[in-house]
Amino acid sequence: MESIRKRAKELLDSKQVQVIIGYENGTSNKVRASFIKDSAQVDKLIYDERCTQNLALYLVKHEVKHLGKMGIVATIPAMRTINMLISEEQVKPENIVVLGIGEDGKLLDFPDLTVMESFLQKANIELTAKDKEAIEKLKKMTTQEKFDYWSNALETCFKCYACRSACPLCYCTRCAVECNQPQWIPVQASKNGNYEWHMLRAMHLSGRCVSCGDCGRACPLDIPVHLLTMHMAEESKRLFGVDSGLSMKMESVLSNYKLDDKDNFIL
């Protein structure tokens, strides 16, 4: 924690960054994102096991981006997100400084982002035991059982879009659900409409999702929507051999074509 504060102070005082995006104590024993612009405030910054939010989300947020160069406290999923955002030209590497946090919760020294890339190549990016177990359980179901499980789970969804808003890779300024000429997805939170929305989200994140789990954590109704995108991340790895977000030059598995791509799924 002290090392994060010290580094944040250095970056702010030397004007290398104008804002540090980190974590601070929130209400009811919760933690939350913190935006420190003045080095006198760095003591607000904290880091502990409660700090799970993927802060890379804020790198593309209008009001935050416009504060200037950003220093960001980044956990492993956030670092992978940063690589994705750079790959997709949403973030300029020269506009950010990463205060990486390793698995042990300690501050990592990244003189530049290529060092972060090297770190990620060797980092543990396994899912948590809990998520793994939930995905395995779903995989063992028959198609009908899976359909019933998701129909039931998604039925309560009221389309507040917290899953979308919490996802740092759902950054479109106009989401497909918001296009109404033509309207691709029914607006109302009905059974079919909900199903279509969540399938669209899962497909749009296939090969891009870094498995941070923030969509599931954000859901006010505790629908495990993160299992959909996490499963698609596993599938992308299985089919294309790619883990998302390990370098700053990721190619999107679903929008790039290579001559040697497998085509055995084509009937």
Binding site: S34, E63, V64, K159, Y161, A166
Partner: peptide, 16 residues
């Protein structure tokens, strides 16, 4: 502005 930098613009608050 100061107090909504972290707001992610979802509708969870309104819908509950």
């Amino acid at each position: 502005v100061e107090n909504s930098l972290r707001c992610i613009g979802c509708g969870a608050c309104a819908f509950v």
